[in-house]
Write a protein that binds this DNA or RNA. Sequence first.
DNA 1: AGGTTTCGTCAACGATCTTTACTAAACGAT
DNA 2: ATCGTTTAGTAAAGATCGTTGACGAAACCT
Lengths: 405, 405
Amino acid sequence: MNATRPVGVRRHNLGLVLSHLAVTGPSSRAQIAAAVGLTKAGVSSIAADLIARRLVAEPGRRTAGEAGRPGSVLVVDGAGCAGIGLEVNVDYLAACVVDLARRTRFHRIDAAVDPRSPKRTLTRLAHVARQARDAATAQGLTVGGVGVALPGLVDPGTGVLLHAPNLGWHDVHVAPLLADALDVDAARVELDNEANLAASAELWFGDGGAWGDYLHVSGEIGVGAGIVRDGALARGSHGFAGEVGHLSIDPRGPVCGCGARGCVERYCGQEAILRAAGVDARPTTSTGRPDGSLARLLAALEAGRVRPARAVGRAGEALGRGVAGAVNVLDVDTVVLGGIYSRLAPWLVGPFTDSLRRNTFAVRWARTRVEVSRLGPDAAVRGAAGLTVHRVLTDPASLSPLVAG
Amino acid sequence: MNATRPVGVRRHNLGLVLSHLAVTGPSSRAQIAAAVGLTKAGVSSIAADLIARRLVAEPGRRTAGEAGRPGSVLVVDGAGCAGIGLEVNVDYLAACVVDLARRTRFHRIDAAVDPRSPKRTLTRLAHVARQARDAATAQGLTVGGVGVALPGLVDPGTGVLLHAPNLGWHDVHVAPLLADALDVDAARVELDNEANLAASAELWFGDGGAWGDYLHVSGEIGVGAGIVRDGALARGSHGFAGEVGHLSIDPRGPVCGCGARGCVERYCGQEAILRAAGVDARPTTSTGRPDGSLARLLAALEAGRVRPARAVGRAGEALGRGVAGAVNVLDVDTVVLGGIYSRLAPWLVGPFTDSLRRNTFAVRWARTRVEVSRLGPDAAVRGAAGLTVHRVLTDPASLSPLVAG
DNA sequence: AGGTTTCGTCAACGATCTTTACTAAACGAT
DNA sequence: ATCGTTTAGTAAAGATCGTTGACGAAACCT
């Protein structure tokens, strides 16, 4: 049931032109034609269609031509459609609105209510989500979909959060609840792991385009990773791929909550690092202010204190051993350090890279690059909004079958 | 440069119908139409095209219909085109010819000349390859391409074997040499790792179709694995994905040739198992007879001796820990034990499965199945031939632009 | 024997991209 | 200032492809 029809060709080429325009920026029809392999006439027809759908705009500017008639510039129309991104974390809730031109139109972080109560937290999340929706409509934007970033295992089919150890939640029906609160189709609410969405955000809003295939490692309370391969997230059969936090790096290591021994998270998770560094880690769930203890760790590191620096270095060494296993299995071009690791990078990257290289089999023929994420802590929310933005950019026909012109 | 044209639709649908026919077996046009989502008229047109290309035959049989006019059965035409598969291993060389109906038309195993001499070994391989080609043409088959299975890292772009530790080879230009010896286009000679090809063979000739996404672990002198995701091999950025043999499972374990410590191969490779079992392992390169020591191990196991059984059980436990890491990263439905592991299965599967489950994070929500390969030791050669068979089945137009009828 | 059901084909049709020719718009040399 | 050159965009014709709908063919059932 995978048959291609002539109309499928149009659908594909609509997405091809629109997403090309999104990554390359303002271009003329002729430039697009040369880049994607269609003829000028073909691009003209497709551009007219996209303009009719209000996904592309023609501001009237012209290319500063070398010789010959200058082209009329086409741009992605940011005023038409937007995606909503939501995030639930141990420390906070967040919401944002991102338009099709990838501009953030709304962004709000909300101190968490007690995460131990899923009901109250989700009620609060629905409230923030409605604020985001209202902000979008007030700016004349059509909401194309909603994405939710969650710190745990999700079932993308049913929209259920199966297991979030750091929240203490299990089997929470997040998607139906939000679909109800926002009055949108449940199929338009997509859930995913925050590590997966942070990795996607890197691709859509960060430097991911230059990294080839990559593994994006997010350090938070837990340690997760997202795998990007051929410009798309590899989610695995059940959406659980990238659980590097529970790779075992020592069969005689401490027992982990997951049942195994010596999991990466026991050495490289935020709490393990804080403990090893001798920085007081108040239980993060009881303080309203996020990152309190992490800020203290950073201050200690910048003050040049020895024990914290050594603790971070040891964590980097351990993380390198774990990630090397993932690299041996995946063969990616690049490993990206995100989350708290991006802030600890000056003290972490050296030991991490050494350890990674020493434990990667094919390193002589495929030296894995190590990069640090430049996206801030809001990578996951933006990635959640990006789910919709990316879907519309690659498949404009998914938004509306046809706009009556 | 990814534009779809109307002719691309035809190309896609040709492959859709032909590969559907290959997996489903003999079907009428109407059955195909209902299954793939095209109309009867569309399938008629495509079938006529495939018959003109001699890729599909219409033997004249009719479906035993319930009611109504019976359909005329279409089958994949095995008499038209075939792929050649070659394999270089420590113990032997092998060659086979597989036709489009997936029947093996020729199969030959050759005792190795001294593998320490790449030149002499490849001369011998070229000789065997010519025998395969001659067998194919003698049966009226057009050779669509050549695949080569090698025990090491290959660069699929240039056709170079980069590094084969167990052969002691490095930087050997295998593809150009064979293309020259067989007088075919170098682009028609594809190299790949034997673990990757064994995994593919499972998909094309074995039970792989029922396993969803899977990791196929091949036990040989080394330990390798192939990853199958969405019905296709995931090769990684450089074709090195699946190197589970060099996952470290103990940071204080023995040093491996790759530089790391405690690699899976040191616990679960053929030589490690033989040593732990107390079975004399003569250097495998000096004996012409393959599998000599493995046969002695199996005899000892079947005789009920304790030490070999315990050794295999321990290897299974260690392998489970390593593979659990891969499963945490990949999230596959199934793990398949192939190579020598399929023969050791009665003593290996239990400890392996227990260890795998204990060390897999998401096991409660996505219980990984464990299966044993039913393909024999010739999985890799058949997979090599399958490269061509699969390419032609999924993209018939790649074979010949158009056959003048 | 006649009705029913399903199969395969044919001709007309609509959708799509390409080809070819043409007009539009800017640059530069004379 | 003018004319030739170059490039951009468009319009019409052409080609390919799958769909639609009608029709004859071939089996089964009553």
